[in-house]
Design a protein around this nucleic acid. Structure first.
Lengths: 156, 156
DNA sequence: AATGAAAGCTCTTAGAC
DNA sequence: GTCTAAGAGCTTTCATT
């Protein structure tokens, strides 16, 4: 399965590709036969399109989206992390190793990292951030609601 | 399929549930028979566990993770958005309607919204933010790398 | 690239522990 | 809550257009 170069031009998608991706985004476990009906192709063609989208790296993977609340994570926070001088790599390692940080980006500007943190309670915030504050300044915002939950970007 | 109450106690997961979720997170399209082998149960029991995790809302959905770069989104930005007085609801609507905002949280503190924005080019940043800046102050950080890509929270 | 038909798997249901 | 067994349904292969 030939891997696409990171620098290559965008993969062009047709209407059927877009419909297929939308159907898979809704429920990735739908049988190929059902997907085929939805996009108006035969099952073999549909299966081949899915394989093609995977080998072109348009589809990274099929995965499961969990509900943080059902798992007892009653709070979410967005934490901005600004490492103290000389602590950049250590801070990155610390963030990686704390599993409650479910997402973390290194960004331009004053705050070096922006991270999403899942919490069982507000008390847990201090507990977790204490592992970071020896090496970085942090600034925490508690999530009150999520007007846009993770969604697909525009496909065309 | 009885829906779980949002306020209910966390759903307790056993080792098999955790293995099953991990296997589905890696590849949500794996056949039940393969999942069954991986977790050491029969196919019918495995299928029933998946249904149970869905009806308990632990599993929100099975979905597809796309590669933004293969789609031509060469840049990602994190934008903090602080609505001007009286513009809060309108700003929220604007963010929702711009599909390049793939995620958006309303948070405590001075910046009301924190959003993730996919971009085809740096020129597109101004283009998109101009729809917001009439109604809000924005502060943009460009993503340089992603030390922690979206991952599962701790399950146990 | 897409299709239909058929072989081979996979899923689900049923019934029992 | 789990299992086996068997029928129903799905996926894949391949020859064809």
């Amino acid at each position: 399965m030939a891997k696409r170069l990171a620098s290559a031009a965008p993969v062009p998608l047709d209407e059927i590709d877009r419909a297929l991706i939308a159907a898979l985004a809704e429920d990735a476990r739908r049988p190929v036969s059902e997907l085929a009906r939805l996009v108006g192709l035969s099952a073999p063609s549909t299966a081949e399109r899915i394989r093609r989208l995977e080998s072109q790296d348009v589809i990274e993977r099929f995965t499961v989206q969990l509900d943080a609340r059902a798992l007892g994570f009653t709070l979410q926070a967005i934490v901005r992390v600004k490492p103290l001088p000389g602590q950049l790599h250590l801070v990155e390692d610390v963030l990686r190793r704390i599993p409650e940080f479910v997402e973390c980006d290194k960004v331009t500007g004053d705050d070096c990292f922006i991270c999403r943190l899942y919490l069982h309670s507000i008390e847990q915030l201090d507990e977790i951030l204490s592992k970071v504050t020896e090496r970085a300044e942090t600034s925490t915002a508690i999530v009150k609601s999520t007007p846009v939950a993770r969604r697909l970007p525009p496909l065309g």
